[in-house]
């Protein structure tokens, strides 16, 4: 009897010892802070630093990656060279896209991407250009979410969570008159 009990206790201890403690933590508040900062920088009044410097000597080959410093007030890394390049491209494109968001031609989906809603009042040439901007913007946004995950040692599985937080941030930062898609899929005008 005692022998059986001893075996059972040993087995339980073995199983307990074999259990791994895995801390799963997704830094949602930090990602949200970063999202607000990035959205503000790219589509708001803030503007990211220019990373393109001329190269004159061997040290200059270090410059594109070096010409930035850690972002104050953000507890996750959103300052990698890749993220800065994406932010610069998105910031430059924002001024071109905003008029079409104001007119209702474009909208922001619940996935945090832009979509052409209705562009019948502009020329076909402009429609094609707007479609190209939208395509490039969405590509950069998806790359941005992946780069944030990578820069902060988050897995690919966390990219959709980052995208969701950004989607909420794009919607909350939308200007009056812009069309926003709700989580249920309905479109409303802010």
């Amino acid at each position: 009897m005692m022998r059986t009990l001893g075996r059972s206790v040993a087995m339980i201890l073995f199983i307990l010892a074999g259990c791994l403690t895995v801390n799963v933590y997704f830094p949602a508040p930090e990602v949200r802070n970063a999202a607000e900062k990035i959205v503000e920088e790219t589509w708001g009044d803030g503007s990211p630093e220019d990373t393109d410097k001329g190269r004159t000597g061997w040290i200059d080959f270090l410059l594109p990656a070096a010409a930035y410093a850690a972002e104050p007030g953000v507890n996750i890394d959103v300052s990698s060279a890749a993220i800065r390049k994406l932010k610069a491209a998105m910031s430059e494109r924002a001024a071109q896209l905003k008029p079409y968001l104001r007119s209702g031609g474009l909208g922001i989906t619940n996935a945090g991407l832009l979509v052409v809603r209705e562009l019948k009042d502009i020329s076909l040439r402009d429609r094609a250009q707007v479609s190209r901007w939208v395509d490039a913007e969405n590509r950069d946004r998806l790359s941005l979410y992946s780069e944030i995950a990578r820069a902060n040692d988050l897995g690919d599985g966390d990219v959709p969570r980052i995208q969701k937080i950004f989607a909420e941030t794009w919607a909350s930062k939308a200007e009056s008159g812009w069309w926003i898609q709700s989580p249920s899929g309905d479109w409303t005008q802010r």
Binding site: T51, F61, L62, A65, A81, K85
Partner: peptide, 8 residues
């Protein structure tokens, strides 16, 4: 590792 031809 390089991004945009600069080391990161």
């Amino acid at each position: 590792e390089f991004v945009s031809w600069g080391p990161v």
